[in-house]
Amino acid sequence: MSTNPVGARFYLGTHRETWLRDERFRGVPLFISHRRLRDRRRLPRAITDWALDSGGFTELSMYGRWETPPEHYAQAVARYAAEIGQIQWAAPQDWMCEPSVLAKTGRTVAEHQRLTIDNLLELRTLAPDLPWVPVLQGWHPDDYRRHVDAYTRAGIDLTREPVVGLGSVCRRQATAPMHALIGDLARQGLRLHGFGFKTRGLAHMHHLLASADSLAWSYAARRRPPLPGHDIAHINCANCPTYALRWRAEMLAGLPAWHQPAIFDLPERSAA
């Protein structure tokens, strides 16, 4: 298997599902939450690649459990794959391990890890043709290493997965322990997707990731005045295509040795 850094494929996070059919985003991979799509009677036909977030942080923070049955989630993702098209992968109904989420659920990190694996296995049984990806959860670096071992015991070889999500890191991604962990996992052959990476985290670790997503542009735009001439259209640029694309271009240009590989450009793994 290849252990060389491959550089990240960057998914631009958005709250606007209509961007999937917007010509301005052709060739710009997008990252969208199930919570944005689930109640839509009509879905856009995608002209660009995209990946699906399950919306787990919001759901667990609100209810302390998954209210959405796996059967309903699998049916929804099957609909997205058929009607939207170009979906690259879908996150399972994973269980985040931030202290605030653990306090809400009343469960331990180990329980969240077990439930994350159980859900992936169930979704792959319910809808084996859909592109479900495993997600690593934890809080301390050794938690993630134990989760890798738990996947192995469950019969899932993460080194053979096209993408492995790395959860519960969005506020800690630029720290030395997370950098060391991501480097260790990448050297083991895991093709990691960094959920919710900020600019600083991408600058430090994009070369160790297979892909990453970010909505950081929207959070920044919500706290700043709109772009010149945009004040007529909106009070801020938190959902502004021009702002999002400008942020993306500037961010990518500022990262060393960045490239935007297609999924099929990533190095193949050996069968061994």
Rank of each mutant, 00 (worst) to 15 (best):
A127M: 09
D129Y: 10
D129I: 04
D129C: 11
L130E: 11
L130K: 08
L130V: 06
L130C: 10
P131R: 03
P131F: 05
W132F: 01
V133Y: 09
V133T: 10
V135G: 03
L136C: 02
L136T: 03
L136W: 03
Q137K: 05
Q137I: 04
Q137G: 00
G138Q: 02
G138L: 01
W139Q: 04
W139S: 03
H140W: 14
H140S: 15
H140I: 14
P141L: 00
D142F: 00
D143M: 03
Y144T: 09
Y144L: 07
Y144A: 07
R145P: 09
R145A: 00
R146L: 08
H147C: 09
H147K: 00
H147W: 02
V148H: 06
D149N: 10
D149K: 13
Y151H: 07
Y151S: 04
Y151F: 09
R153M: 05
I156G: 09
I156E: 06
T159D: 11
T159M: 06
T159W: 09
R160A: 14
E161K: 01
E161L: 05
P162N: 02
V163D: 10
V163P: 07
V163K: 11
V164N: 04
V164Y: 04
V164G: 10
V164P: 05
G165W: 02
G165I: 07
G165R: 06
G165V: 06
L166E: 10
G167S: 07
V169A: 14
V169W: 13
V169Y: 15
R172C: 12
A174N: 12
T175Y: 11
A176I: 08
A176H: 12
A176T: 11
P177S: 12
M178A: 15
H179P: 08
